[in-house]
Design a protein around this nucleic acid. Sequence first.
RNA 1: GUGGGUAUGGUCCAGUUGGUUAGGGCGCCAGAUUGUGGCUCUGGAUAUCCUGGGUUCGAGUCCCAGUACCCACCCCA
Length: 438
Amino acid sequence: MADIMQPRILTGFVEFLPEDQILFNQMMDTIRRVYEQFGFLPLDTPTIELSEVLLAKAGGETEKQIYRFRKGDHDLSLRFDLTVPLARYTAQHEADLVFPFKRYQLGKVFRGERPQKGRFREFYQCDIDIIGSENLSLFYDAEMPSVIYHIFKELDFGPFTIRLNNRKILNGFFRTLGLQDQITEVLRIIDKIDKIGEANVRSELTELGLSEEAVNRVLQLIGMKGDTDSILQGLEQLNITDEVFLEGLGEMKQVVENMRLLGIPDDYFRLDLTIARGLDYYTGTVYETILNEYPGLGSVCSGGRYDNLTGYYTKQQMPGIGISIGLTRLFSQLKEVGLVKAQRRTLVEALVVPLGKEQMPQCLKAAAALREQGIRVDVFYQEKGMKQKMKYASRLGIPYVLMIGEEEAAENKVALKNMDKGEQAVLTLEEAAAVIRP
RNA sequence: GUGGGUAUGGUCCAGUUGGUUAGGGCGCCAGAUUGUGGCUCUGGAUAUCCUGGGUUCGAGUCCCAGUACCCACCCCA
């Protein structure tokens, strides 16, 4: 016999067994349903694009992590997020789109970085973005958290907190300290405070060249704690006159007000001045979402506002705002902490089993009739012993087995067995259908 | 890119100071039970012990190199 090829997949890539894929798809369905509920339109862009398009803006990290290859004369890349393709798409189809353009996209993205726990080279992102033409109402900044609220409420993984901040507040504040040249580095450092602690942030900021006075003021700002209103009050009492700061503060106040009007309870969001988001294209409101009981999972949904995402593809100024759920990571983490657990290995509600092959015609008819009523039905076609047939149903976790033997066929009835309870009854097909799908 | 760890049937693991035919759980196949699954019992199949080299009378075990995978940092979903 010939050598057997070792069956394996690349490291950093994932695939699930059916019982997990079912759960994964259910989460995705929930996300899609809520997105649509808020008026977002579906979009599906190619996974491969021209490198020059995807890398128009890219800086160092992206460039290093992107899967890039040649095919014929083309320099191609796999998309590493859904935002850049959206920018390209919006600019390309500008004339045919209705603005503000609200789109959702659930799709795989690729990053050739070193994989580790909760970190993959191919993974699903579930994004929504709204792109405005020239301007984009601040109300959208409150709608984003409303979407997050509905999704995580429905997913039901316990209490969660949407943490929000505004980059203008940070930028304006840093400007008053004369730090405008190091803003990106400072943001990156303070963003890590949850992970590395205040002392390490202090030393890293000092290392960056900030004066002790500046470090103290930064830590004082980002250390502001308390409920939403007291933080807003505290920010006002800093008496900062920088106009960017004041603009950010004004936006934040309005966003909070609108979030409340949209019905997000106060204990589901919190102002957090440490949230910066690594990405440098954010310019206004930024979000992060954490599960209160599992803070170690990090942010399960994040995003923010950007002024001009499409700048590389069109002269039109197109501000936008969006959020993203890293579904593959989220799912793998939820599984790890036991928040999602596989129940059944199939979606089938009833297995139709002929006791002998003479009953196959009745079984085919019965299956068709049940499917007509929307019941998910599987038929056991294989010629096997009764034990095998039952085992098939049992192993897949099919809740009902509908059997037709000589006696049942003669009476035009079926034997319906409840697999969980082990009970069995002889019924008409209509009665059986009512039991399977009450 | 930097640092650490692991590698034994399909899978998860055990394997003593180096010693004869490398064990077990789960899974798989068959039977006890050809109109009834889960539980139990009985039997069975499946391993170049990651690869290459070295030490030794003898290596799954010790040494060297390589490879793969995992974890952490960086960065991020």
